[in-house]
Design a binder for these strands. Structure first.
Length: 578
DNA sequence: GCCGTTTTCGGCCCGACTGTTTTCAGTCG
């Protein structure tokens, strides 16, 4: 096989098939089935090629006989006849029209059949020429909306990182909370589930008079444009280009509303399935049994009526959390308060902006017991990597700071370069001098799978290496993850006891949630780090913790929830220095 | 196309908003 398809490539093909089936006008449940399977393949946590090789495709939820057969053909040959036949019937250009807001499968088909539109640009031209309003079911207003949709599409900067979205949302929620009659506010949607990237800001408010709240909301200074506005919801585009959706519900329906709008959609679908089995119908307004209404003022009420414990939002991706809740084996998720120290940080000795002293003070102010200063090693010239001699000097400074501090302790580490040629930047005798070593790849990220995997495995097997930093090297929206065989690294890390980092920098969040869940399954120890290059950047820890929670991690599985003493014991047993 | 303490066939979640509609279809989340 010339190219091994990744999970997301396979899922993408299934999603496109679903798109084409919708345009064809097939029964909706068929395309839903394709989408569900695609979702589960993305959330698999392991390489679908391996699942295929084991003959276990049918074990993937949502994959039945027909899909297993198609996936087998796709993974075996790299092609899928069914998909190619569909492409003959529905050109890719028609599918691409679905990217336009306001254009769904019905409209796409109409535009294609009646106007021959095969691209977004075709639709834009037709709309500008006033030809859309002549189509059945469309009028001048629809034409205008579609045109606006295309303009929004052209300027849309896709999804933004959680770290960018979160502060913006909190500010809007603060303003909402100050409005007359607003009793409660909360983030909802992917924001509340702490997904790595956020499409729209979903905001929720409890108030009796929704009309006045949405009216005030659309006049907030951050708002550039009002997309829609009604008595219970409003959608706006902010000056920074983000879209924000606000929903307003009365206080007595807060629980069901918050649950509903937090999603995920898949989680909610499964939940409604459970409700139905009990003769209940669930919506954002509460439960209904025939004509009787059951209100849920708190989110716990929604779950309790189904006999379930409250499920943390980070788990609500329909990746087994409902079954786990039913069986009483939901994980006790790690929290920011569990974190006792940070194992990865930089100072102005390499590419950080703060002094060792300032970083130490910052970490102590956060209530940490310890901080590992882990500046870059010499091979990373662009980051002013340090030589062994410079590290020895830095050690003296760290010793001095420790000598005058009480309770808090600095440890000296390094972020050891895993060089492109597969070597480690320092020999073992130098590595033995550090309290803790984080080893990371910063170069040769485009190497082929075997080569880059072998580099990382070498670091995992080195007894002086304690943590593998940002394993895949992905930068959200900028750089795809490297081809590294995550499964192989995780398995080896489970064997050697090496910790794998969950890097909290919002653009990284690496490992990602799906692989964290797999790491937990394999018993791999995690280290949640801020990788801070400044004092303010310590706060990235919270995004790292959120990502670990999304991967079902509990405190026991996270190295830096341990006390200084326990950490030092762990380091000593690993055979490194300290 | 999937799936089964209702079922191997017949279900498959629910509602807001908008526009072109004389009662509803399409899109979105």
């Amino acid at each position: 096989m010339e190219h091994r398809l990744t999970n997301s490539e396979v899922a993408e093909i299934l999603q496109r098939i679903a798109d084409m089936l919708e345009i064809k006008g097939e029964v909706v449940y068929k395309s839903l089935a394709y989408r569900k399977a695609a979702q589960n393949i993305v959330g698999l946590g392991r390489d679908i090629n391996e699942v295929w090789a084991e003959g276990k495709l049918r074990d993937i939820p949502g994959v039945g006989e027909a899909l297993a057969k198609k996936l087998d053909e796709l993974l075996r040959t790299g092609r899928l006849q069914y998909y190619e036949d569909l492409q003959e019937e529905i050109p890719d250009g028609v599918v691409s029209l679905l990217a336009i807001p306001e254009v769904g499968p019905k409209t796409a088909k109409l535009l294609w059949e009646r106007l021959g539109a095969m691209s977004v640009a075709d639709v834009e031209r037709a709309a500008e020429a006033g030809r859309l309003r002549q189509l059945p079911g469309l009028g001048a207003r629809s034409e205008q909306r579609i045109l606006e949709g295309i303009r929004a599409l052209n300027r849309r900067s896709s999804r933004i990182s959680l770290g960018m979205a979160w502060p913006v949302a909190i500010e809007l929620l603060d303003q909402l909370h100050q409005l007359q009659g607003v009793e409660k506010v909360s983030p909802a949607g992917s924001l509340r589930r702490m997904k790595a990237t956020i499409g729209d800001l979903d905001l929720l408010a409890a108030a009796r008079d929704g009309e006045s709240v949405t009216a005030a909301f659309v006049r907030f200074p951050q708002v550039a444009e009002v997309v829609l506005q009604g008595p219970t919801k409003a959608t706006v585009v902010l000056h920074n280009g983000l879209q924000a959706d606000l929903r307003v519900l009365p206080r007595e329906r807060w629980g069901s509303a918050l649950q509903y709008f937090t999603g995920s959609k898949e989680h909610n679908v499964s939940l409604r399935g459970l409700a139905q089995a009990r003769g209940l119908s669930l919506s954002e307004y509460g439960y209904r049994r025939d004509s009787e209404e059951i209100l849920c003022p708190e989110e716990e009420d929604v779950y309790r009526l189904l006999g379930l414990p409250w499920i943390p939002p980070e788990l609500r991706e329909d990746r087994g959390e409902i079954l786990a809740a039913e069986e009483g084996r939901l994980p006790d998720l790690v929290e920011v308060a569990d974190i006792r120290g940070d194992l990865h940080s930089h100072t102005d000795w390499s590419d950080g902006v703060a002094s060792v002293e300032a970083m130490a003070e910052g970490a102590e102010a956060l209530g940490y017991e310890y901080l590992v200063i882990s500046d870059h090693t010499r091979a990373l010239g662009v980051a002013n990597g340090l030589s062994p001699e410079r590290f020895r000097e830095q050690r003296k400074l760290i010793d001095r700071i420790n000598a005058r501090s009480r309770g808090f302790r600095l440890l000296q580490g390094c972020e050891l370069e895993i060089c492109a040629d597969g070597s480690l930047d320092f020999p073992d005798e130098v590595l033995a001098q550090f309290d803790l070593v984080v080893a990371s790849v910063h170069s040769g990220l485009r190497q082929e799978r075997e080569k880059i995997t072998e580099r990382v495995l070498k670091a995992v097997r080195n007894p002086h290496v304690d943590v593998i930093g940002h394993l895949t090297g992905r930068l959200l929206g900028q750089r795809e993850p490297s081809a590294v065989d995550v499964e192989a690294v995780l398995q080896e890390a489970a064997r050697t006891g090496t910790a794998i980092e969950v890097n909290g920098i919002p653009d990284r969040l690496d490992l990602d949630d799906v692989h964290i869940q797999r790491a937990i399954e394999l018993g791999v120890l995690l280290s949640i780090d801020s990788d801070a290059h400044s004092v303010e950047a310590f706060r990235a820890m919270s995004y790292g913790v959120a990502t670990a929670r999304r991967g079902w991690a509990s405190a026991a599985q996270v190295l830096n929830t341990r006390s200084l003493h326990e950490l030092q014991l762990w380091l000593r047993r690993r055979g490194g220095a300290s």
